[in-house]
Design a protein around this nucleic acid. Structure first.
Length: 278
DNA sequence: GTCGATGTTATCAA
DNA sequence: TTTGATAACATCGA
């Protein structure tokens, strides 16, 4: 579900409500959601939430006592602030209970997501954060061109590789590649500097607009307020296979590229061959 | 009932 | 180093 714009939306909505709040305890209804733990959960008691931020697709919750709670939503996770009397259903796996009774509730139907409870003096320097590439909205054009030149992997696989660029997911890859008119299977190295700039701009545009629209609700994604995002209504490629290309009217097609469902326009996004002999 | 697909990523084999 | 397949899980639709 959540890619960079969705996680950013979640963080922006949670931050004002959580910053400064005091934690009472972490209730784990499903123990498996704690994926890694270098600090004991009981250390959370009476700690103050100092900051809620995002890195790639991770939510970072920094607390006093040198604690950091990382949350990854994977496919179907979500976070909501609920009242003390909100009943948990079978997909609600954990509550960070605040001293005032409110609960930061983690729900995840598919159970791929989870928490990590780390020492914030080390969290930047150890996995998973230390493994992440630059933020797509922060990487410079020069660095982005260098990234493209560094590999002959399919451009879509490169954009999805969190070690090279942190935050892009399937939706925003398809959207950015469509806008830049680049076939997702194009070897990254084969993309010209001009096309590279187009892709850099398309990526920034798509992410920025998606954040403005509070993300894409394709299926289960909801903001912490329980609302759907709106950006799905503005998708040009993702989820539109069989419908006409907004640019040329050709029917969009769906393929499996880089192991992911990939929608593209066969006319606007031609695969660059090395050189066509004739 | 079965099959395939779903926004993600860790892991393992080639 | 890279890639591709697979698995983790639940749900939905054909």
């Amino acid at each position: 579900m959540p890619e960079l714009p969705e996680v950013e939306t979640i963080v922006r909505q949670l931050s004002p409500d959580l910053t400064g709040a005091v934690v009472d305890r972490l209730e784990l209804h499903s123990p498996h959601v704690m994926r890694r733990q270098t600090m004991p959960a009981r250390a959370l008691r009476r700690q103050t939430i100092l900051q809620v931020s995002r890195r790639g697709k991770f939510v970072r919750i920094r607390l006093s006592g040198h604690l950091e709670l990382l949350v990854h939503l994977r496919m179907s996770g979500n976070l909501r602030l609920v009242g003390h009397d909100a009943k948990a259903d079978k997909h609600d796996h954990a509550d960070l209970v605040l001293a005032d009774g409110r609960r930061l509730r983690f729900r995840d139907v598919r159970k791929f997501g989870g928490f990590m409870l780390l020492d914030d003096r080390q969290s930047d320097h150890e996995p998973p954060l230390s493994e992440l590439g630059p933020e797509p909205l922060e990487i410079s054009l020069d660095d982005f061109r260098r990234l493209l030149a560094s590999t002959s992997r399919a451009i879509k696989a490169l954009l999805l590789d969190q070690r090279r660029l942190a935050g892009m997911g399937n939706i925003y890859c398809d959207e950015a590649l469509f806008i830049a008119a680049i076939h997702p299977a194009t070897p990254a190295r084969a993309i010209s500097p001009e096309k590279g700039e187009k892709l850099w701009q398309a990526m920034r545009q798509v992410l920025t607009q998606a954040i403005e629209h509070k993300g894409s609700s394709v299926d289960s994604y909801r903001t912490p307020e329980g609302k759907s995002g709106n950006y799905q209504n503005l998708h040009l490629a993702y989820g539109r296979a069989g419908r006409p290309c907004p640019h040329c009217g050709t029917l969009l097609q769906k393929f499996n590229i880089a192991g992911r469902g990939t929608t593209l326009c066969p006319k606007c996004q031609r695969l660059m061959k090395r050189r066509s002999r004739r």
